[in-house]
Design a binder for these strands. Structure first.
Length: 680
RNA sequence: GCGCCCGUAGCUCAGUUGGAUAGAGCGUUUGACUACGAAUCAAAAGGUCGCACGUUCGAGUCGUGCCGGGCGCACCA
């Protein structure tokens, strides 16, 4: 709603500026902000400062921003939905909306969150992508929660999104666990299969043992290389064991993520990329397009290499004949095998439908809600699925891999005939690390050096990390105690469902309240908090709103009627009364409505910056505003007791306001993947 | 050595393409439940936005240099 007003005003402004000052501006050139106080208006435009600058550049004469603002303001008098315009400060142009009209519109039209600037093609979001060899930890959860929220934001804004979770089932990490079972525990496939649940926890510990096993002798180290080779070549029982482990762990991961409300549409596997010869096709394309070069001398002798973007032209000339510019990236080793970057280029060409090859697919796992996730396979059958063929892709991968991801993107770009890939990107996020305290709480003994540091990296190899299911369990237990104290009438089953939603709300909000590039120093007390800036705080506000409407329903009051035209005059008068009584210290009903109406604007910011945190902060602030409104005291001049409000017009206004806030809060929480229980 | 990121209240962090008086939470101190459910609210204290120049009508935000911290720079993935 707010966005629509902004658009109209900007367009009007552009044409006014054209006729008044003969300057060509587009709506995108015009900055809008929220005034620091509601008293100053609903939309603020610092356009006059910009005009002064441009006029000075065009004519050479200095102009007073305030006078420019007045000129412009006078020519913008009759915009629909705008009540008045004021000049403030050094030259701000502040717009006041027709408040009663605005509220009436909100109560009659269900607002769509679909944005104007959508891509118009399928977007592929890849996230989670955990090595299938051990339990997921909190760092993996950050990846998944972030990725899942990006998916929700994009979908809500009108995009067509496909969710992938890439499975590296042929890498060293899986090989390491195979080594553990085969050579440390000396188990057969059948014996491995008899391992009790939780299998991912068992492998977590085993994986840590393998690290020590390698240190014991060079012979043990060689087992790793041999095992990896057997897996890649799909040979004998080693490959079978690897296949078994990765699939069983994968199911563990899918179940863990489902607890957090996260699921996928397709699981592309690295083994299938290998066996379906994706690389060979990509290799030919790379060679044909001169994207890679074969080195015949120097340190990269016998390798196919790619040159960094900035090393493709002059810089290389400067370096002279020595054929080993340090930014060269090896794609094919001198023994003929392909590196990770090469495989990833092939895979991403597939994502964009530019490889000319496809996987086969089969159903892999059915979620409790009945929908099925597909996995790739090399076996031909009739399961035709249209996965891939996107116009752009987003890969949620930690920032530590930016260096290699840049080469992947570069490679894909070199083979792309259009600019679609330019929109695609590595969606980098920072790690979750442990504080020395949290590492100690996990029973980890810190070395002297480590205890001096403020951050301890989690390490699968050391078995150091906060396991996802452990943390979720802890949160659920803690929430359950609270629920048992508060909802004594509820059944055990109901209490557990509430506790689950609270726990997930707490965890997801905790991970999303930070920006992507903030390193999260994991702290147990902070992650387990239900008070203050947390998910449960916001859920609680929505639950309060819910119980107000339950009570209204109990006394038989109809609350679903939208505001009628006949109500507008009275409500308009109420707003004016509020405005006149500045003793209400700015806690205007209008300011709440105005704040609530910003959701779509905030969603746009989040989509543009790919930062869910904006929606998270918005939800918290709106919940805080509502709680303040809700708690307003009778003896402090004003109170807003909705159920006790005798004046029918005022009552209608309050009910419409509360309903709107509840609806906006719930939408915002949905974008973050947080569900709201009926009671809590 | 080269590249990227960070430095904002005691702690953990926000801060909208440069805009009006820099904001939250936690912690500390003090108050509010015979309730539209206190997982809440009110109030107080807490800042030379790492430092120094520069650009600008205007800088936490942009540029340069320094100081302090993190990460990356494999014929690993």
């Amino acid at each position: 709603m707010l966005l629509e007003f902004q658009r109209t005003i900007k367009q009007e402004m552009c044409s006014a500026i054209k006729s008044l000052f003969d300057l060509d501006l587009t709506p995108a050139d015009i900055t809008v902000e929220s005034p620091p106080k509601v008293e100053l208006g609903d939309l603020a435009f610092p356009i006059a400062f910009q005009l002064a600058q441009r006029l000075k550049a065009a004519t050479g004469t200095k102009q007073n921003p305030r006078q420019l603002a007045e000129k412009l303001g006078n020519s913008l008098q009759n915009i629909k939905g705008v009540k008045r315009i004021e000049i403030a400060g050094a030259g701000y142009l502040n717009f006041y909306l027709d408040r009663a009209n605005f509220l009436a519109k909100l109560s009659t039209e269900k607002e769509s969150l679909v944005l104007d600037e959508i891509t118009g093609g399928k977007l592929i979001v890849e996230h989670t992508s955990i090595n299938p060899n051990k339990a997921a930890h909190i760092g993996h959860v950050r990846n998944a929660v972030f990725g899942d929220s990006i998916v929700r934001l994009l979908k809500a804004s009108g995009e067509n999104v496909e969710v992938h979770n890439y499975i590296d089932n042929t890498g060293v990490q899986v090989a390491d666990v195979v080594v553990g079972f085969k050579y440390i525990e000396k188990k057969s496939l059948q014996e491995i299969a008899a391992t009790e649940e939780p299998f991912d926890y068992y492998c977590w510990d085993l994986y840590a043992k393998v690290g020590k096993f390698y240190e014991e002798s060079p012979g043990n180290q060689r087992l790793r290389a041999a095992t990896l080779h057997e897996i890649e070549q799909n040979e004998g029982d080693t490959a079978e064991i690897a296949e078994y482990i990765s699939q069983r762990i994968l199911v563990c991961h899918l179940k863990t993520m489902w607890r957090l409300g996260i699921s996928y549409q397709v699981l592309p596997r690295e083994s299938d990329i290998l066996h379906l010869n994706f690389w060979q096709t990509a290799f030919e394309k790379l060679k044909q397009n001169n994207a890679i070069y074969f080195e015949t001398e120097g340190r990269n002798n016998g390798c196919w290499v790619m040159r960094a973007d900035d090393a493709r032209d002059e810089k290389r000339e400067e370096k002279g004949a020595e054929n080993e510019y340090e930014a060269d990236k090896i794609i094919v080793r001198s023994n003929g095998t392909v590196t990770y970057v090469g495989k990833d280029i092939a895979y991403h060409l597939w994502k964009l439908g530019q490889l000319g090859l496809d996987f086969y697919y089969k159903p892999f796992y059915t979620y409790p809600d009945g929908h099925t996730v597909y996995i790739t396979t090399t076996e031909k059958d009739n399961n035709v699925q249209n996965f891939g063929n996107g116009v752009a892709y987003f890969n949620v991968i930690d920032v530590g891999q930016s260096y290699t991801q840049n080469y992947v993107k570069l490679g894909v770009k070199l083979l792309s005939v259009d600019n679609r890939v330019e929109r695609s990107s590595h969606l980098a996020y920072e790690k979750v690390v442990l504080t020395p305290e949290s590492a100690r709480e996990l029973g980890y003994e810190l070395s002297e050096q480590e205890s001096k540091r403020s951050q301890i990296s989690m390490s699968g190899r050391k078995g150091l990390g906060v396991k996802a299911d452990d943390l979720i369990n802890k949160l659920e237990e803690k929430a359950l105690i609270e629920v048992q104290n508060r909802q004594k009438d509820a059944t055990d089953q109901e209490q557990r469902e509430i506790a689950h939603k609270v726990a997930v709300g707490a965890l997801r909000y905790f991970l999303l309240k930070f920006t992507r590039n903030t390193i999260i120093a994991f702290d147990f007390s902070e992650a387990l908090a239900f008070q203050g800036e947390t998910g449960p705080y916001i859920q609680y506000a929505v639950v309060r709103i819910g119980s107000m409407f339950r009570k209204l329903a109990e006394i038989g009051e109809e609350t679903t009627d939208p505001l009628k035209d006949s109500d507008l005059e009275a409500i308009s008068a109420l707003f004016e009364l509020e405005e006149a009584e500045s003793g209400w210290s700015g806690k205007y009903l209008w300011s709440i409505i105005h704040q609530a109406s910003r959701l779509k604007d905030v969603l746009r910011t989040s989509v543009k910056t790919l930062e869910p945190t904006h929606v998270a902060k918005y939800a918290y602030q709106l919940a805080a505003t509502f709680n303040e409104f809700y708690n307003m005291k009778v003896d402090s001049k004003v109170s807003y007791k909705v159920l006790g409000e005798p004046d029918p017009n005022r009552r209608r206004l309050l009910i419409a306001l509360v309903a709107y806030v509840g609806q906006q809060l719930e939408s915002a929480l949905n974008l973050l993947g947080v569900e709201v229980p009926a009671k809590m």
